Computed example of a mutant assay.
Amino acid sequence: MSDPVSAPPPPSAARPVAAPGRTGTRSPGWVLGRVAGAPVVLAPSSVVAALVLAVVFLPVVGSQFPGLGVGAYGIALVFTVLLFASVLVHELAHGFVARSRGQQPHEFVLTLWGGHTSFGGASPTPLTSALVAVAGPAANLVLAGVGFAGASLVAPGGVADLLLWGLGVANAFVALFNLLPGLPLDGGRVVEAAVWGAVHDRSTGTRVAAWAGVVLAVGVPVWVLGGPLLRGERPSLLGAVWSCLLGAHLFQGARDALAADRWERRRDALRLEAVVRPAVTVPAGASVAHAVGTAAAAGAGEIVVLDEAGRPVGRVRRPDALAVPPAAAATTPVSAVTAALPAGAAVDGRLAGPALMRALVAACEHSDVAVAVVDGRVVGLVSAVDVVAHLRART
């Protein structure tokens, strides 16, 4: 048997598309194909991972086959390809289990840190979340078993033995590391699901698992660096750099999970009064002077123009109205300074939470502002910029 791989690939993680700033667009990279209705994307950062893995595995090949020469590079390349295939199997396992539970994968991405599977939304139940999370590590354990079994069937000390044994060790490491109990790792999703199921609140589960991820982010480099120091040895430079980078990656993932949770909690608590700009309405035939005077009397900063049927058809920006010379304001029709509002820009102001958010997203596809209407009466305007700022504000 060969020496174990000294630095297996970092973990991958399944994640919903829920964090602030995610738009549902595809991650940058090369599309290798489509599986389960979703693209398989090779991110540019994966090239760095491939080079690092090849460099790490090359000395192992050289120690086993000192006279191999250039062929050692070929073996290192084959091993790297096998590891990337293992990561892809991990991600596909997430996707297939999710799809079987009614959750459509959005994309499978291979990255510097292994990979991730994104979905169009969060898991609907704790059980689904847990099953999707454990599917990836379970696939790696199966591959580890295949690698070890294959190594036992081939001649010891050969190239096949080296590759199969290394594949088994690497997959076992990836599976066990991913099961560590903290976000963004799969084990963190299991913790999140367990707490969610116990207290019936996903947000609490996310916060517990994310803070556990922060502990892991600190613990990984401490363990990698502290172990050799306690034994009176000097940590390897590669191990020190890799563990610190991995710790930073885990910390960022945990931080993103907390940010996404804060975003979702504020979205669920969203109410119109938190983001609406009070507005007055004036008929399309009114003058600029009348519109400005009506807004000033009501203390409103926005003016909405109504057609003859009382439907909002335009918006008057106060700077445009005030730019009209006072001597001409009384005779200038408000239509001269009105920006048209499309029909789909209206939202029901009685909505709240996710329903209000969905309505605002749909309305802002037609315009940068939405008209809030309650029982047929315009109460104000809602800007997409104001909504995003409200959701991103820290509690």
Rank of each mutant, 00 (worst) to 15 (best):
L351P: 00
V17S: 15
G299H: 06
L82Q: 05
P228L: 07
V387R: 08
L270W: 09
A217N: 07
V305Y: 06
L229I: 08
V70S: 14
R358I: 01
A19T: 04
V134G: 11
A38D: 02
F79V: 01
P283N: 12
P16K: 04
H90G: 09
G150S: 05
G314D: 11
A343C: 03
S2R: 14
V61R: 06
V334G: 04
A54S: 14
R394N: 01
G157S: 10
V146C: 09
F119T: 04
A284D: 08
L341W: 01
G353H: 02
V280K: 07
A259S: 13
R26E: 08
V97L: 08
M1T: 12
V35Y: 00
P16G: 05
L229V: 14
A328G: 03
R317H: 15
L351E: 07
L216H: 05
A339R: 12
A363W: 05
T294K: 10
V52D: 05
T117Q: 02
V275M: 11
G226K: 04
P137R: 13
L82Y: 07
L250Y: 08
S287A: 06
R394D: 11
S118I: 01
L164C: 02
V337A: 10
R202G: 04
G232I: 11
V241C: 03
A133R: 04
V374L: 15
G69S: 06
P342V: 09
R189S: 14
E308T: 13
A172N: 04
A248N: 02
S243W: 02
S123F: 10
G114L: 03
R392F: 06
C364P: 00
W196Q: 05
V371F: 00
L58R: 10
A76H: 07
G299M: 10
D186S: 09
R394V: 14
A346V: 15
L167W: 14
A330G: 15
V89I: 15
A355C: 01
V385K: 11
F84Y: 15
G376P: 04
R255K: 08
R358A: 15
A343F: 10
A269W: 08
P333S: 14
P137W: 07
V17K: 04
G168H: 05
L179S: 09
L82E: 02
A240Y: 03
L153K: 05
V215G: 12
A329N: 02
L163Q: 03
T332W: 08
A98I: 09
T128G: 14
V305H: 12
L77C: 12
E365W: 13
A260Y: 00
H290Q: 12
L68I: 14
Q103F: 05
P105S: 11
H116Y: 15
E91I: 04
G380M: 00
R311M: 08
R231Y: 08
A291D: 06
L162V: 00
A321E: 01
L360T: 09
A13D: 03
R267Y: 06
G29T: 03
L341I: 07
S287M: 09
V218E: 00
V195G: 03
R101D: 05
P105H: 12
G69C: 06
V316N: 03
A359Y: 03
S123Q: 06
A279S: 09
A363V: 02
G37V: 03
L141N: 07
A149M: 07
A297N: 09
D368F: 02
A363M: 00
